[in-house]
């Protein structure tokens, strides 16, 4: 079935397996009564269950929790946080500020984009190794057609989060997966190839761990949605406490104009 018939078949009704609520009576979450069966579930475990339909062990959930915690930076200069802070400074609502900051986090050079491309890279690297290809050969092939995400970082190539995440992965017994090992091998090979600015970054290590937990690229993308969230409210709060409009005010001469010179507008509305 396709075309108008496909649309007509779905018109006017929601058919779903993931859940529904009946106000005043009950709610169902992926085949379970939310209140009877899941009321004491850890929030992140529920979040992951909602994304994947699979249950994760407490040690896996602890690792994933740590992935969020270790990168919660309340620095209002960082571009996504800056949006939250500007919202506070401009006396906008906290939900608007945080929602926009989360939307901006789905960026190409940090956040959502690199994480998605990095887990895709590791999953393909794992398949290449399983088919007998050498990792160095796979990397060389990748570099000829695309960037390798998960390595290199804007502002500073050294990622201070990684030692803490390595320790957490070890503590939770999550450091023996294939992709986690591949991640270090890739860094070593890149450095041997002279690409000294391509040290492993947080997207690289977290996506390798995500791949080892069996997450697909899209599942990992969804897991990462609130990853920077805890660092954002402090930025909104502090900006809202300071006088309005005082976050990064720019004087008129703070713009370096590089466009065409001043000229006259000749058209007139009749």
């Amino acid at each position: 079935m396709n075309g108008p018939e496909l649309l007509a078949a779905h018109s006017g009704i929601l058919r779903t397996k993931v859940g529904a609520c009946w106000p005043g009576t009950r709610a169902v979450f992926r085949g379970h009564d939310l209140h009877r069966d899941l009321h004491d579930t850890d929030w992140l475990e529920l979040y992951l269950f909602g994304i994947t339909g699979r249950r994760f062990t407490p040690r896996q959930v602890k690792l994933l929790h740590g992935i969020w915690v270790i990168t919660s930076y309340p620095d209002a200069r960082i571009w996504n946080n800056r949006v939250a802070a500007l919202a506070g400074s401009s006396r906008s609502s906290p939900v608007l500020g945080l929602a926009a900051a989360l939307a901006v986090s789905e960026a190409r050079i940090y956040g959502g984009g690199p994480g998605l491309r990095a887990i895709d890279f590791f999953l393909r690297a794992g398949k290449a190794l399983a088919s007998g290809q050498a990792l160095r050969e796979f990397i060389t092939g990748e570099l000829t057609v695309r960037h390798i995400y998960g390595y290199g970082r804007p502002i500073d190539s050294c990622d201070e989060r990684l030692p803490w995440l390595v320790n957490l992965a070890k503590e939770q017994g999550q450091d023996q997966g294939q992709h986690f090992k591949i991640a270090f091998e890739v860094e070593k090979i890149l450095l041997e190839m002279g690409k000294t600015n391509l040290r492993m970054n947080y997207a690289g290590m977290t996506s390798a761990l995500g791949a080892d937990l069996g997450l697909t690229p899209r599942e990992f993308h969804l897991f990462r949605v609130p990853m920077f969230l805890a660092g954002m409210p402090p930025c909104w709060v502090e900006a809202a406490e300071k006088p309005q409009g005082t976050l990064f005010p720019t004087p008129c001469d703070g713009i370096t104009y590089e466009g065409v010179g001043q000229r006259a507008w000749h058209n007139k509305i009749s």
Partner: peptide, 28 residues
């Protein structure tokens, strides 16, 4: 400024406009 924070990091077009809307929605 908020929209530019989206643009500079390669956020989606919609995210940049959402940033402009959210920050430009307030009482200042």
């Amino acid at each position: 400024h908020a929209a530019m924070c989206g643009g500079v990091g390669g956020s989606s077009a919609a995210a940049s406009l959402i940033a402009a809307l959210s920050v430009g929605a307030g009482r200042y």
